[in-house]
Amino acid sequence: MVSPNAPVPRVHEGKVAIVTGSARSIGAAIARNLASKGANVLISYLTEGSDAAAKALAEELSTTHNVKAVPCRGDITTKEGCEKIISTCKSEFPAHAKTGTLQVDILIHSAALFHAMPLEAVTVEDFHKVYSINVLGPILLTQAVKPYLPTDRSGRIVSLSSVGSKVGLAYLTLYGGTKGAIEAMTRTWARELAENATVNSINPGSTMTEMFANAPDAAKEAIALFYPLTPLSPVREWDADEMKELGKKYGGRVAYPEEIAGIVGMICSPESSWMTGSLVSANGGQWFSG
């Protein structure tokens, strides 16, 4: 008989999760969510400027949730950068009990370069940079991770798209285009990787992050046109002061990073094993899942 006081096993206890773009913002919130459920987390990020944030997050997750959290700076738009992520996982995380080698149970494609410019301002250089990070990066990293995925369909791959791709937000010629590609790849990978993992994507709307804060006013005003039609956009009395100020200026609230992370966490749960190839709404109802 199991004691009623026995600790309840966490759903991701001992699993390995790779979260790109996770030194800050939504990626960091996703890393926290998965770590709280027992996952060991590889905190993947791109620039030297994020070294301190990634290190601090790794220490936070390790201390708070008693998991192994490891920062790794690498460029996922190169095979060398992806190989560095895999080699770091091999050296830092315990081998899987059954296979004796690395198993990557969860892969989250959160890293992205935001671009919001009118059509006439888009350049060839912008195109290659945005598509390289937002589309080529997930392709190369998924290629690198594929040999290490589970073989019993228990794996989870989740990519972050954007509601801007669905509703056609102004100024998102490049960013929205890359997210449309992410959604198409999600459906393809759901079939190709069916024996390894479920593959789904979510499409967040605007979220209280540095990316949103640094977006041009014109882009924020274009987004604000949708607030009257978004069911969960009204600001509530318990919202943070920063969110209340945003509501006063633009007429509605955006998401908190942890709200987006919660939806990713739901998709990664064992209970979501019968869902794959899906695009899940994560935008307060700005776009309803079909």
Results as ranks from 00 to 15, higher is better:
Met1Thr: 11
Pro4His: 03
Arg10Thr: 12
Val16Thr: 13
Ala17Glu: 02
Val19Ser: 06
Gly21Thr: 10
Ser25Asn: 15
Ser25Arg: 10
Arg32Glu: 13
Arg32Asp: 12
Ala35Tyr: 00
Ser36Asp: 03
Lys37Asn: 13
Gly49Val: 11
Ala58His: 01
Lys68Met: 09
Ile76Ser: 05
Cys82Tyr: 01
Cys82Lys: 00
Ser87Phe: 03
Ser87Gly: 03
Lys90Gly: 04
Lys90Arg: 13
Glu92Gly: 06
Pro94Gly: 02
His96Tyr: 07
Thr99Leu: 15
Leu102Thr: 08
Val104His: 01
Ile108Asp: 07
Ala112Arg: 00
His115Asp: 11
Pro118Leu: 02
Ala121Cys: 03
Val122Pro: 12
Thr123Cys: 09
Phe127Ala: 09
His128Cys: 03
Tyr131Ile: 10
Ser132Lys: 02
Ile133Met: 08
Gly137His: 06
Gly137Pro: 15
Ile139Tyr: 15
Pro147Cys: 11
Arg153Glu: 11
Arg156Val: 15
Ile157Gln: 06
Leu160Asp: 08
Ser162His: 04
Gly164Trp: 02
Gly164His: 01
Thr173Pro: 12
Tyr175Gly: 08
Gly176Pro: 15
Gly177Gln: 06
Ile182Leu: 10
Glu183Trp: 04
Ala184Gly: 13
Thr186Ala: 06
Thr188Pro: 14
Pro204Asp: 04
Gly205Val: 04
Phe212Lys: 00
Lys220His: 03
Leu225Lys: 12
Tyr227Pro: 13
Arg236Ser: 12
Arg236Cys: 05
Glu242Gly: 10
Lys248Thr: 13
Tyr250Thr: 00
Arg253Phe: 01
Ala261Gln: 06
Thr276Leu: 05
Asn283Ser: 07
Gly284Asp: 04
Gln286Glu: 12
